[in-house]
Design a protein around this nucleic acid. Sequence first.
DNA 1: TTGTAGGCGTTATCAC
DNA 2: GTGATAACGCCTACAA
Lengths: 331, 331
Amino acid sequence: MSVTIKDIAKESGVSYSTVSKALNDSPLVKPDTKKKVLQAAEMLGYTPNFAAKNLVSKKSRTIGLVWPAIDRAALTALVSKINELVTAQNYFMILSVDAADKAVGMFKGFQVDGIVIFEEGKETKLPPQAAASVPILTYGVSGEHVHPIIDVNHRKAIHLAVQHLTELGHSSISFIGSTDPGDKRQEEKLSGFYEAMNFSGLSVSEERIGSTNGLSWYDGYLAARKLLTDSKPTALISGSYDISVGILRAAKELNIRIPEDLSVISYDNIPQMASLETELTSVGVPIDSLAEKMVSSLLSLIQQPDSISHTQLMEPELAAGKSAAPPKKHL
Amino acid sequence: MSVTIKDIAKESGVSYSTVSKALNDSPLVKPDTKKKVLQAAEMLGYTPNFAAKNLVSKKSRTIGLVWPAIDRAALTALVSKINELVTAQNYFMILSVDAADKAVGMFKGFQVDGIVIFEEGKETKLPPQAAASVPILTYGVSGEHVHPIIDVNHRKAIHLAVQHLTELGHSSISFIGSTDPGDKRQEEKLSGFYEAMNFSGLSVSEERIGSTNGLSWYDGYLAARKLLTDSKPTALISGSYDISVGILRAAKELNIRIPEDLSVISYDNIPQMASLETELTSVGVPIDSLAEKMVSSLLSLIQQPDSISHTQLMEPELAAGKSAAPPKKHL
DNA sequence: TTGTAGGCGTTATCAC
DNA sequence: GTGATAACGCCTACAA
């Protein structure tokens, strides 16, 4: 069928073990021979068989990335960046959009050297715990897991947002996000909001919190509509990119201009934001830092298990856009 | 390291070939033995080694999907659907975000049974042609390729759009899309527009065409701004989802209401559209039909090469939204 | 019904 | 420098 090193051996008139060496650029083979072999391989259109290679070497130089929610646009940039970084380290990366448990099983079957899991909030379908045979790194869901985790200091991020708004002169600040008690990530944001508001000596009544039932733009839209008609905040902090989309839509329908009538700070600074009507000011960890941390962590985990601490919290930054401005006096 | 069938054999007190049979649910093994083996496997946390399995069977029951432009949101729904369908057929699917040539090489290394390539317009980096050893199906780039192609009847799609608009009473209709001569797909749309307009007896002067330099929302935005200020069409047909986003933004800035002042018909009916400010009317092939066609084609291609015709054109439909309405009299 | 043996494509360890 | 040869984990005749 497919061309193997034996075919190359036949073609170039050497033994197949020599071919193997030549192909791996071993110093134990004469340059002449090497060239000859390489040419034959080229000519025959040889592709190495990873299955065989992995079988003997026990290494695949491949990492698997589990990403069940590919429609969550927020992560595409991160995934691309990670791919770039592992490629630079001479690794392959393959993705799966299956649920974590299934994907992990598949990846293990393919002998990947390491796995990254992008879990979505509460959907914590932890992979079979017995499956400790391959390094697994999880993005974002602290707690539950046995595996090392890269997480964002969500609390701090919200602090930054509140701080920015108070510095601009806002005091009537609301938060819109999921208050689902099962979602640790969202909980962090919410309690970060309370903390920061208290710290600034601002009141936080219940009506200052726009509670969404989910994380889609529509959830944000509904919550924003309610919040913006009930109370009249001068500033809004959003718990996620998608929610921000909903907020923009609600504001538009209510004829509320941003940032003239309402300041908005979004969560996560991602490229997709560029396509929104308004250039959003946002808080979050820069994609590049995240990707670098994740890749370096996973690789060191591959080289020596237990080499990294269980949870690593990344520090967020504020990215200035055009959606936050000083409040108008007496709206 | 990892647990193998030999470990299971030892554990359950049978030979490893019996284990192999039991694991594959062969009828040649006594139910009792089978149960015993299965339990042992479960207990030990056995994961089959695909590398070894593929090596001997020459089949991986895995298909690879090449998707370099994961940030093109338009395709996530299609990818998810395809994954769903192949899973139902007991296949695995892995993705790569690398360029087509690299990804194909990798997938072949992993011994995938078939490959789907999502090419983006003109970036036709055709994989090494010698590489005919695995069935490859391409989405959307007719011409060039040697591999079977699933394509959309773009011409017809635009016809539908024009027809819908004329039925609503529009006669001043413009098209915004890429006129890059290297992009076959875009060319089709443009010539479809000319055809349909002629068929309806409508004039198409140069100024009716909004030519973009690319396919991003910003390209659409620029073109739309120009078009909407220069001429005053009552309806606009967009060549892509991203361009539609730009059109919406431009219209907003110019205080043009949709659909009151301007009807817009977008391209591709995808879930992401739900997050836009305006619910767009669109033309395109329903995601589900596309996914089904692609999967069934690939699988039959795997079973018997040359079993499907080279190019298959899918028929588009019009999906009614809220962005197309009768024109106002005398704007 | 179960066990034995050969081989899948590759690398690595030896002799030559 | 180069060429046999033994693994790697699994499947599949074929033998018992």
